[in-house]
Amino acid sequence: MEKVKVKICCGTSCFVMGAAQIQVLEFAPPADIADKIEIEEARCMNHCKDTTAKYNRGPFVMVNDELIEEANFEKVVNKIREILNQEK
């Protein structure tokens, strides 16, 4: 089974919006998904510079091809579980 790719933006604005808390996934992931994910830290993915959005909707995380806005640890983990369940 292919691993779920998680790309966490660690650019300045995502970082201050809380990306560091999501990085915990890398060092202490929940046991059920630990070996099923592949983490990548990215530099600014430019979503934060989207001027059509009124406010910054960071931190941004990509789970496979899906963009999660205002991401947090729970949201990302849920998304990963959702994808894993679909694949079963």
Partner: peptide, 11 residues
């Protein structure tokens, strides 16, 4: 960097 001027940033 426009994103840095966003008032919703926590710091």
């Amino acid at each position: 960097n426009v994103a840095h001027q966003d008032p919703s940033l926590p710091m």
